[in-house]
């Protein structure tokens, strides 16, 4: 699988410059006390990884990869591992930058706030990955974009209609109750989400014909 991961990471190396520029912008804005855009960086890393599907598709890499040893399984697995590696690496750098900004601005490092914020971002990023990847494997990257748009749009519309009628106080109470365990619960949910998403993508790809 290592070879497949290297291939996916090699495909995004031209985007490292873009990420570097975003990190500089984030740092400068942080020093100036402007809006916190740290959430953009991990999200960008997933979006960059999603762009690799287009290149794969253009050169029919998926079909070619099946001709390689264990290609059908490793192709999907590597895409998930490469995305998670990339997202975690970018998040780690962002956390370090945030520590630096916090220290320069306040002479202290607000560990708790920075880590909580980055943890939320990471969870959201993994959510995008878990929803997007099976849809991309099923429909192809072009149709998947439309599919995602329709899902998000549909959820907003349904949510907009239902929200006034829902009593959400029990969720808020539950959150209070679970506060001590929230991070642990979210980590478990994230692991289960990614695992299920991978299994679904793998199943779709295993049955796919080219």
């Amino acid at each position: 699988m290592i070879g497949f991961i290297k291939k996916d990471l090699a495909m995004i190396k031209s985007n490292f410059k873009l990420l570097g520029i975003l990190m500089i912008i984030y740092t400068v804005m942080g020093f100036l006390g402007e809006m916190d855009i740290s959430f953009i960086l991990p999200f960008m890393s997933v979006m960059i990884m999603i762009s690799t599907f287009s290149y794969d598709n253009y050169n029919k890499w998926d079909a070619y990869s099946i001709s390689l040893p264990d290609g059908r399984r490793n192709s999907v697995r590597a895409k998930y591992v490469a995305t998670i590696l990339m997202t975690f690496a970018v998040s780690l750098i962002t956390i370090l930058l945030s520590f630096m900004i916090s220290y320069v601005n306040t002479k202290t490092i607000n560990y708790e706030e920075i880590l909580a914020s980055m943890f939320g971002t990471l969870f959201g990023t993994l959510l995008v990955l878990t929803v997007m990847y099976p849809i991309i494997y099923k429909l192809g990257v072009e149709k998947a974009r439309i599919g995602i748009f329709l899902i998000v749009f549909g959820l907003i519309i349904i949510g907009g209609f239902l929200l006034p009628y829902l009593d959400l106080s029990f969720i808020i109470k539950s959150l209070d109750f679970l506060e001590d365990y929230l991070i642990l619960i979210l980590i478990i949910i994230a692991i289960i989400m990614v695992y299920l998403s991978y299994k679904i993508s793998e199943k779709i790809f295993r049955k796919k014909e080219f």
Binding site: K7, A10, M11, Y55, Y58, N59, K60, W61, Y64, S67
Partner: peptide, 13 residues
């Protein structure tokens, strides 16, 4: 294998 029109993504080296 050499397959008709199937290969590595062309942004690779």
């Amino acid at each position: 294998v050499v397959l008709d029109d199937m290969f590595f993504p062309e942004i690779l080296t």
